[in-house]
C-alpha cells in the first residue's frame, strides 16, 4: 500500500478516528494500573513489573495526548484555553512527562509512589470541573495563550516543588529514624532533592506571577462578550492569595543564604499544597454551585448565545 493512496488515507483516518474517541477513563485506567504496578514493587523491585509500569505510563500518555487533541479539535481552541477540565489535564500531561523523564534517567527511584497519586488526583478532579469552553479567542488571542501557558507551566513547577518536598520529608524522616533502605524503595538524596525543590519554586513563581499579571490585564481590558473580572470572584481571590504566598516563599528562598532543608521542604509542601488545593478546589466549587467565575464555570445560556452572536448579553 502506498503512502498517499486512497486506501492508506482511509485506513489512517480510521485509526485516527478510533484514537480520537479515547475517553478520560482510558488513560485514567492506564495510570491507575501503572501506580498499582509501583505499589506491587514496594516489597521488592521486579524488572518485569517496572517495564509493565513504564509501558502503561507511555500508553496512558499516548491516550491522554489523543484525548487533548480531540478536545482541542472539538472546541477549536488550544487545550490550555478551552476549559478548566482541559487545563487540569494539560498539567497532568506535563506531570506524566516529567515522571517518564525521571524514570528513564533513574529507574530505581521511587518517584512514581509520589507522582502517581498527584497525577491521578489531577485527572480525577478534571471530571468535577467544567468542561465547557468559557473563553472566546476573538480578542487578545496571543495574550490569553500566554496567560494560560504561564499559569500551566507555573502550576507544573509548583507540582514538582510539592512532590520534591514530599520526597524530602520522606527521606528526612527515614534518616532521622535511622531506618534502613530497602532495595524496593530508593529515594533521592537530600542534597539533590533540596536543589530540585529550590529550582522548582524559583522557576514556578515567575511563571505564576506573569500568568496572574496577564490575567488581571486581560480582565481589565475585557471586550465584547467576555466575562469581566470581579474582585469577589473566588478564583481571583484564591489565585491572588496563593500567588502572594508563593511570592513570599520566593523572596524568602532568595534572601536565605542557607536554611534548614526540612524547614524549606515543610514550607514548600504547605505553600504548594495550599496553592494546588485552592486552585483545584475553587474550580470544583464554582463548577458545583454554578457560580459566575472567570475560569470556573461555563457562561450561562444567554451569555453563550450572546457571545456566539458577537453582542453583549
Amino acid at each position: 500500500m502506498q503512502i498517499g493512496s486512497p486506501v492508506y488515507f482511509l485506513k489512517s483516518r480510521a485509526v485516527i478516528e478510533i484514537m480520537l474517541k479515547t475517553t478520560v477513563i482510558c488513560f485514567l485506567a492506564s495510570y491507575g494500573l501503572a501506580f498499582a504496578c509501583e505499589l506491587s514493587q514496594l516489597k521488592r523491585r521486579h524488572a518485569l513489573a517496572r517495564i509493565v509500569s513504564l509501558l502503561l505510563a507511555v500508553a496512558g500518555l499516548v491516550a491522554h495526548t489523543f484525548y487533548l487533541l480531540h478536545r482541542s479539535n472539538q472546541s477549536d481552541l488550544p487545550p490550555l484555553l478551552s476549559s478548566a477540565h482541559d487545563w487540569l489535564l494539560v498539567v497532568a500531561w506535563l506531570a506524566v512527562l516529567v515522571y517518564l523523564f525521571v524514570t528513564m534517567a533513574d529507574g530505581e527511584l521511587a518517584t512514581g509512589l509520589v507522582m502517581w497519586p498527584v497525577i491521578l488526583t489531577l485527572v480525577i478532579t478534571s471530571r468535577f470541573v467544567t468542561d465547557s469552553p468559557s473563553h472566546r479567542l476573538d480578542y487578545h488571542r496571543g495574550w490569553k495563550m500566554l496567560h494560560a501557558s504561564m499559569l500551566g507551566l507555573g502550576t507544573t513547577f509548583v507540582l514538582l516543588g510539592f512532590v520534591s518536598s514530599l520526597l524530602y520529608l520522606w527521606q528526612h524522616r527515614r534518616l532521622k529514624k535511622r531506618l534502613m533502605t530497602t532495595s524496593a524503595v530508593k529515594l533521592p538524596n537530600l542534597e539533590l532533592i533540596e536543589r530540585l525543590n529550590r529550582w522548582a519554586i524559583l522557576t514556578a513563581v515567575p511563571f505564576q506571577a506573569f500568568g496572574i499579571a496577564t490575567g488581571f490585564g486581560l480582565s481589565i481590558f475585557a471586550k465584547g462578550g467576555e466575562l469581566p473580572m470581579t474582585w469577589t470572584d473566588p478564583v481571583v481571590i484564591g489565585g491572588a492569595i496563593t500567588g502572594l504566598l508563593m511570592g513570599v516563599l520566593f523572596v524568602w528562598l532568595l534572601t536565605q543564604k542557607r536554611s534548614p532543608g526540612r524547614q524549606v521542604a515543610l514550607l514548600t509542601a504547605w505553600a504548594c499544597g495550599f496553592l494546588l488545593v485552592t486552585m483545584i478546589g475553587l474550580q470544583m466549587l464554582t463548577a458545583a454551585v454554578g457560580m459566575r467565575s472567570i475560569h470556573g464555570s461555563a457562561p450561562v445560556a444567554s451569555e453563550a448565545a450572546a457571545a456566539a452572536e458577537g453582542r453583549a448579553p
Binding site: L175, R178, T181, L187, N189, E191, R195
Partner: peptide, 13 residues
Amino acid sequence: VAVGDFAKSIFDH
C-alpha cells in the same frame, strides 16, 4: 552501612 545507606542518602557527592 553508615556511608552506603545513610551518608549517601544525605549528600549527593
